[in-house]
Design a protein around this nucleic acid. Structure first.
Lengths: 168, 168
DNA sequence: GCTGAAAATTATGCATT
DNA sequence: AATGCATAATTTTCAGC
């Protein structure tokens, strides 16, 4: 247990404080509000707010971006798919997934399946073709199982650490 | 097939054009750049850029927010877990997951498992305890299977529709 | 729905503690 | 690392096309 902790700590991880926490909370609500407004809300000097935001972004603790809702662009059919992908084509397959607008999540895995993807399609027919034809016809790729997802309830873009993850 | 298409179209879905596409591309790189800078980059009047951004946000096609990297806050152990959750406690369980900082993705499902969650922990021991003790000890919750995730390669926050999803 | 011009607000660079 | 101040840039408001 101590070993595991030590391994995690070895990954260099700047520590952020409660001011950073407050800034992250404000930016989560609307990432385009002005630094001055954040400064007013949390009662911190505006220059400080700006520097903190820069530090958070530069250290890659946060990324200030735009989340696009796939369903607003017609992608209503969702499936989570677990795959067994041959090592020889693993990296290449990931590259093709990244380019595929139907793939919106890729994770490596351990076990029977070594890759998990989340896919979104304009309709069930497209999804059916992908799972039953396109993937099985790809050399080196085997569909281990899949999971039709009627609704995504919560996603990483809504996640934030808890206050106790920030030092005083 | 036509039926499926029609069902999808029935969900009201404002259509966005190539200008919106360009704006989304710029905001994806850095959501805090000024509207004027976007205007300069894509050669559109800056007032137009602002109105488009407002429309995109108000229609919920995009959400401009801050993505926090869990690994920067020590969450290095990741598992995807498929669960069978009794209907009686389904909504309540989802609520508790939303509040749990170890859960960063929740999706409903069809089949043997009816809920999929992605979880992140500070270390493997915490993850082990959650999967082997905390979940099985929760009444009405059964772990169908789980999947240790060494690395998340790509996620929804990097996804954008393709240009052809936008009208001319 | 798009743009112009002035006023208000915000961001930036430099300097100080 | 945090702030004050002056200047530059941006956003907002009101207006007309």
């Amino acid at each position: 247990m101590q070993l595991v902790r030590r391994i995690n700590m070895s990954k260099k991880m700047k520590s952020f404080d409660k001011i950073d926490f407050k800034i992250i909370k404000e930016l989560s609500k609307d990432a385009r509000i002005s630094a001055s407004e954040i400064a007013r809300t949390i009662d911190i000097n505006e220059r400080t707010v700006r520097r903190r935001i820069n530090n958070l972004v530069e250290s890659k603790a946060i990324r200030i971006t735009t989340i696009v809702d796939p369903s607003m662009f017609g992608y209503h059919s969702i499936a989570d798919i677990n795959l067994k992908v041959d090592e020889e084509i693993y990296d290449e397959f990931i590259k093709s997934c990244k380019k595929n607008p139907n793939v919106c999540y890729i994770a490596s895995g351990w076990g029977k399946a070594n890759l998990a993807i989340e896919t979104r399609f304009l309709d069930n027919e497209e999804m059916y073709n992908f799972i039953n034809y396109k993937l099985p016809e790809t050399k080196g790729v085997e569909v281990i199982n899949f999971f039709i997802v009627p609704k995504i309830i919560y996603n990483i873009d809504e996640w934030t650490p808890v206050e106790s993850d920030f030092k005083d």
